[in-house]
Amino acid sequence: MIGNDVVDLSLSTFDTEGRFWRYSQKVCSPVELKQFGHFESNQQSLWRVWSLKEAAFKAAVRLGYQGLFRPAKIKVELIDSTRAIIQIGHYKFKGRTGIDQQQLWSDVVIKDLDFKSIVSIQKPNCVPISYKGRLPFIRSEKGGKLPASISHHGSFFRLIYLSA
């Protein structure tokens, strides 16, 4: 099962250092705050942790999780500059994050091996998307439906699915 999130970094800045830390304390645990700045800048750490929480929430909903999105209750452990482990309720996911000058994106899966099967699309309206409730699917080449995860923020769009 998969989930993803993208952050447009140009829309995600803070006017003051104080505001940045107040924001961070609302959505991160003290343990997560201690990881800030280890592998990237503090602000990138915040959005990296945030996007992993969003992505894990989407993946957990796919698996039947019925709770609300409560960022402070989702645990993120950063392993290195790209990899992370995320826990939401009893669901545990592996996360990967990419960062460039303008955007940051995170994908989560259950098994590391699944990262190799991720197909990503960066432009909207490239593939037809159907929904079951609020869950997106795309059509596979064989005509079946593949679970997808979609995120857009500001100028950026990212759809992912696992190749069949």
Binding site: S12, R19, Y23, K26, V27, E54, F69, P71, H153
Partner: peptide
């Protein structure tokens, strides 16, 4: 309102 901005709303309310 996106979920990241909901936190901004809370900070602004504070």
């Amino acid at each position: 309102i996106n979920s990241a901005n909901l936190v901004d709303v809370v900070l602004d309310v504070e």
